[in-house]
Computed example of a mutant assay.
Amino acid sequence: MRELLRTNDPTVIAFASALLDGEGIASFVLDANISVLEGSIGILPRRLMVAERDHFMAAAVMRDNDLSVTE
């Protein structure tokens, strides 16, 4: 797995996941339940992960939709 996106905004994660799903690219959100530890204040970022083989295409999808990609 390789990190594609890191953000504190859950709407960006949802949007990015929907875009990838539409392209047939599987993704996985890490740290999704971290809010239990942080008290739901949103300071810890969530990470969107994709398979190494899909990273190039997933990054292109993110850039085409004006989303920044973790390098």
Rank of each mutant, 00 (worst) to 15 (best):
D64V: 08
F28N: 13
N8K: 14
T7Q: 03
E71W: 05
E3P: 08
F28V: 12
A14I: 13
F28H: 07
L20I: 07
V69F: 08
I41G: 04
L67R: 06
R47T: 04
S68K: 12
I13C: 08
D31Y: 08
D9S: 03
M1A: 01
F56T: 06
M49T: 08
L44F: 11
S40N: 15
G24R: 03
A60Y: 01
V69I: 11
L20G: 00
S35V: 09
R63W: 02
A59L: 10
G24W: 10
D21V: 13
D31S: 07
G39V: 05
F28C: 05
E52Q: 10
R46I: 10
P45N: 09
L5V: 01
T11R: 08
A32Y: 06
L37G: 14
S35H: 08
V61M: 01
D21H: 13
R53S: 14
A26Y: 00
V50A: 06
L44E: 11
I43G: 01
M1R: 01
L37F: 09
V61L: 03
S17Q: 13
N65C: 15
I34C: 08
T7K: 07
F56E: 13
R2C: 05
V50E: 01
E71N: 12
D64Y: 07
E3D: 13
A26C: 02
M57C: 14
S35F: 02
L37S: 15
T11D: 13
N65P: 15
D64T: 08
V12Q: 00
V36A: 12
L44K: 09
T70H: 04
E38I: 04
L30Y: 05
P10Y: 07
I13Q: 06
L20T: 06
M49F: 12
A58V: 02
D54A: 15
M62F: 02
T70Q: 14
G22S: 12
L4D: 07
P10R: 11
V12E: 01
V69G: 10
L44D: 14
R47Y: 12
L20P: 01
A14C: 11
M49I: 15
S17H: 11
T70M: 11
A60P: 14
L48D: 03
N33G: 02
D9N: 14
T7I: 00
N33W: 02
A51W: 03
V12Y: 00
L19T: 08
N65A: 15
D54H: 03
D54F: 11
S40P: 02
V36R: 13
M57N: 14
R47M: 11
L20F: 02
L48R: 09
A32F: 07
M1G: 08
R46W: 04
R47D: 05
F28I: 04
M1S: 12
R2A: 15
G42S: 15
L5N: 00
R53E: 07
S40E: 11
E52C: 09
D54W: 08
F56M: 03
R6G: 00
I41P: 00
V29Y: 02
E3I: 10
M49W: 05
S35Y: 00
S68M: 15
F56V: 10
N8I: 00
V50C: 12
I34Y: 00
A16I: 01
P10I: 14
A59T: 06
V61D: 03
N8G: 00
G22W: 11
L20Q: 07
